[in-house]
């Protein structure tokens, strides 16, 4: 099941814990994978770990020309892109009263606009191939909201709405567009929390633990597969029961 042999995938934000895990899962299923991110060294490390069928493309999604360049570069190294995973995302948390214009703009640019530009730039090849998978990594807070994250929540909710519109536009061409919405996932960022802080978080999660990057990668792998061909415009929440939508 979930054989991606012969498929070509682009994963953004592949230097992060979740992004790297997604790249590994798609690669393990047989896909040729282009990994993109801002930290070239980290990308090279991941590429070395994966071995063959992997390409490194450094890109800074806060810059529009860099996004357009990523479309070109991906086309050059992969030929065409069958699977696009928009995973790159940033936070610039602040209470709305204190939020700077730049904190709003940069989060919307990286999290939402770059995703649209990438999809727009790559959908042509998918339309021609009559096959394509777009998986956008959103967040549980895009649906539930979270204080201090008006910009982040807006960008992630925007991703969900955008995915539904694109799903409707592209369904007749064999292209699905879906979201995966992680809850609390264990990453280097959560490792520094004290046991007390961790307990406070896990108390609100019915499964009683943080999720792993692999939990997210598995959901992405499913949505990228042939088996998920009839699933489109959906948001798959992977959160241990934290929010049931």
């Amino acid at each position: 099941m979930f054989d991606l042999s012969g498929k070509k995938a682009l994963v953004t934000g592949a230097t992060g814990g979740i992004g790297a895990s997604i790249a590994k899962a798609l690669h393990a299923a047989g896909a040729e994978v282009a990994i993109s991110g801002t930290r070239a060294e980290k990308l090279q490390e991941l590429a070395a770990e994966l071995g063959g069928r992997v390409h490194v493309i450094a890109a800074n999604l806060s810059d529009r020309t860099s996004v357009d360049q990523l479309v070109k570069d991906a086309g050059e190294v992969l030929g065409s892109v069958d699977i696009l995973v928009n995973n790159a995302g940033i936070t610039k948390d602040n209470l709305a009263m204190r939020m700077k214009e730049d904190e709003w703009d940069s989060v919307m640019q990286v999290n939402l606009e770059s995703a649209f530009r990438l999809i727009k730039g790559l959908m042509r090849g998918m339309m021609k191939a009559r096959w394509g998978r777009v998986v956008n990594i959103t967040s549980v807070v895009g649906v539930t909201g979270n204080p201090g994250q008006a910009n982040y929540c807006a960008s992630k909710a925007g991703m969900i709405g955008m995915s539904k519109a694109l799903a409707a536009e592209l369904a007749s061409r064999g292209i699905t567009v879906n979201c995966v919405a992680p809850g609390f996932i264990a990453t280097p960022m959560t490792e520094v929390l004290t046991d007390e802080q961790k307990a406070a978080i896990t108390n609100g999660i019915p499964s009683g633990e943080l999720g792993s990057p692999e939990d997210i990668a598995s959901a992405v792998l499913y949505l990228a597969s042939n088996e998920a061909k009839y699933v489109t415009g959906q948001t798959l929440h992977v959160n241990g029961g934290l929010a049931m939508i």
Partner: peptide, 11 residues
């Protein structure tokens, strides 16, 4: 043709 077909034809 639907609207997407016309885009594809132009392509």
């Amino acid at each position: 043709a639907d609207s997407l077909d016309t885009v594809e034809l132009v392509m």
